[in-house]
Design a protein around this nucleic acid. Structure first.
Lengths: 189, 189
DNA sequence: AGTTAACTGAAATAAGCGTTCCAGTTAACT
DNA sequence: AGTTAACTGGAACGCTTATTTCAGTTAACT
């Protein structure tokens, strides 16, 4: 059987889909933004119905927007793993992760109880990369070995998010967090 | 002028007020509970209107319920400060705080963007107590002195909450958190 | 027991949200 | 230029919740 009567896609539909995606990404980076369909539509300059239709629903749109924001972060984690030692990669990546989360805390706020396939997959990739850093750093003797790497990864994920969520954003707090966390992860004396 | 015609308070109103408060406290301790007026009313065995009227609104009811849950925690912090050394008090209290937050994470979930006077006051008391522990522990030489005590307090508050929020609750994660945090707070070598 | 008014709770209301409808518009193709 | 159907967006809808209404109930006092 051939494809079941695939409808033509008009140029304005493609354009509006991109506008909706851009608008969602913009609002995700803005602290305290409403993130309603109405707000996204207004930001995009189109009607609410168009925003919903473009992705088949609000959740799917958020999935796409968050994925586009998360993608470079995951890639950066993998790059760091390839470029430098695991511990150095961990240090550098954590700093950048907190900065990213601070700049996009709406991402984290809105995504706890949702089922977003693409986002979930990317998050899994992120977790895998961090776990790799931790396992490598253990083998290097750079961090303590009395804690399960998976637990440490979860710990980092949860706490980094919490620090980034602080309103208003505080660089001092972020620095203190990284200092305490990394010192706390050093090998036992 | 005298009090402007204070109306009599009937026994059933007093009883229902208590039922509503107990119901709210119960639901706050249950993970994933809806925490709607309807749910609270059902738990209390009264009508929704009665629940709302008893405190003048849902927010005021939550304020009262959360306060009653938070009160013993604040008292415990003060007791520990009086009974033992600041650092020991900090260690003990943090462990208990994480346990409390794990058992009542609905408390934290629902209370980020709300204006709840009594709860806010109690939280301030909690922050003050922890800050006292940290300052005392610094003077003892038990923790590092290169970080602002207020920042450390904020850090602890944010991260403890995040760890407690983990679903399902994980004692292993909580222990790892406390280990890393306390080691990370130790004086620089 | 009778009177009063505080109180109750089912139902109505209000407000915010995502989604769907549909009359009109417009891109795409001839 | 004309035809077609994909597309648009204001309006209507459906759903969830907090709040208010009000006819009936009942505690409190005499």
């Amino acid at each position: 059987m051939s494809t079941p009567a695939e409808p033509r896609r008009r140029a304005d539909a493609v354009r509006n889909r991109r506008l909706a995606l851009d608008a969602a990404m913009t609002l995700l980076a803005e602290p305290g933004a409403p993130l309603t369909v109405e707000a996204i539509a207004k930001q995009a300059g189109v009607g609410a119905a168009t925003v919903v239709r473009a992705f088949g629903g609000k959740d799917a749109l958020l999935d796409a927007a968050v994925s586009r924001l998360l993608e470079p972060v995951v890639r950066r984690a993998r790059d760091l793993l390839a470029e430098t030692t695991p511990y150095q990669a961990l240090r550098t990546f954590l700093r950048e992760l907190v900065a990213f989360q601070t700049a996009h805390h709406a991402v984290n706020d809105q995504l706890d109880g949702l089922d977003l396939p693409a986002t979930t997959a990317l998050r899994a990739g992120l977790v895998a990369a961090v776990e790799e850093m931790i396992e490598g750093a253990r083998r290097e003797g750079a961090i303590r070995t009395d804690l399960d790497p998976a637990v440490v990864t979860t710990l980092i994920g949860r706490t980094a998010l919490a620090v980034a969520r602080t309103q208003p954003p505080s660089q001092v707090l972020a620095d203190a967090y990284l200092t305490v966390l990394l010192d706390g992860l050093r090998p036992a004396r």
